[in-house]
Simulated assay, not measured.
Amino acid sequence: MTHKPIRKAVFPVAGLGTRFLPATKAIPKEMLPVVDRPLIQYAVDEAREAGIEQMIFVTGRGKSAIEDHFDIAYELERTMTDRGKDISVLEPTRLGPGNCAYVRQQEPMGLGHAIWCARDIVGDEPFAIFLPDEFMHGSPGCMAQMVAEYNRVGGNLLSVLEVPHEQVSSYGVIDPGLAQGKLTEVKGLVEKPKIEAAPSNLIISGRYILQPEVMRVLEHQGKGAGGEIQLTDAMAQMIGNQPFHAVTFDGARYDCGSKTGYIEANLAVALSRPDMADEVRAMAQRLVG
């Protein structure tokens, strides 16, 4: 059975990044670097690896640096070329004409509202969602793993990770059904359950493939937790009406919305790179010792 391909991805990047103030006073949190690439670049690279063609950024005030990052920097490239420097390092930052779109979320009304702001660009197609501060580190990338499963079963998919049971109350958790390999049927979603009431220890981890019908649900979605329009509430309404599965990501997740998670991501990426792993490992051992 063939399914409509996943050609578009939505990146909700309108958040204020208050947990990283004052660093994020003038710089979007999505532009904070993990070693030498900003968080948003990792997410876009993950999307490209999965075969996604169009990147849709839902931005807010003060986010113009994201647009500049994915544009051509004529002056920089000319200066580097004149000085004999290699500009191939900038190649991943270029998004071709028509391959990126920007839409403004004027008010901070929640993740569901941010996704709904992209409805006209998404159109009547299934689409991916990336939360860039959920840094997913693995090969193949998280979305490539999800697209492979989507091509088999279609419908809606969430990325999940297994965590210790004592941590489940900090996350959204799935109520699992039949499991086959890394694919698990989703019977329900529970936001930050009590440990004793959690239906599983599989947490939702910042990557989604959703059918366009979610936009119609979001259009009439009332405010939920925190007085915001929640994507989780809209997805919960779709369960039972459309196929819904979770894909257990084979890789590591770092919460770059927290300072300690961000530092951990930098260390993990540095240790995975042959050009710096030995030096960083020795440095870490000196600091810890």
Score class of each variant (00 low, 15 high):
residue 183 L to H: 13
residue 184 T to A: 06
residue 184 T to K: 07
residue 185 E to F: 03
residue 186 V to T: 02
residue 187 K to M: 02
residue 187 K to G: 07
residue 187 K to R: 14
residue 188 G to H: 00
residue 188 G to D: 00
residue 189 L to P: 03
residue 189 L to E: 01
residue 189 L to W: 02
residue 191 E to F: 06
residue 191 E to L: 13
residue 193 P to F: 02
residue 194 K to A: 13
residue 194 K to F: 12
residue 194 K to T: 10
residue 195 I to N: 00
residue 195 I to E: 11
residue 196 E to F: 06
residue 198 A to E: 03
residue 199 P to T: 02
residue 199 P to W: 01
residue 199 P to K: 05
residue 200 S to L: 02
residue 200 S to V: 10
residue 201 N to R: 14
residue 201 N to V: 12
residue 202 L to Q: 08
residue 203 I to L: 09
residue 203 I to S: 03
residue 203 I to P: 05
residue 204 I to T: 09
residue 205 S to Y: 05
residue 207 R to Y: 02
residue 207 R to N: 11
residue 208 Y to P: 04
residue 208 Y to H: 11
residue 208 Y to I: 08
residue 208 Y to D: 09
residue 210 L to R: 13
residue 210 L to F: 15
residue 211 Q to K: 12
residue 212 P to V: 13
residue 212 P to T: 11
residue 213 E to W: 09
residue 214 V to R: 04
residue 215 M to E: 15
residue 215 M to V: 15
residue 216 R to T: 12
residue 218 L to I: 12
residue 218 L to N: 12
residue 218 L to R: 04
residue 219 E to N: 05
residue 219 E to L: 08
residue 220 H to N: 07
residue 221 Q to S: 11
residue 221 Q to M: 14
residue 221 Q to I: 10
residue 222 G to Q: 09
residue 222 G to K: 02
residue 224 G to D: 13
residue 224 G to S: 06
residue 224 G to L: 04
residue 224 G to T: 05
residue 224 G to A: 00
residue 225 A to V: 13
residue 226 G to M: 08
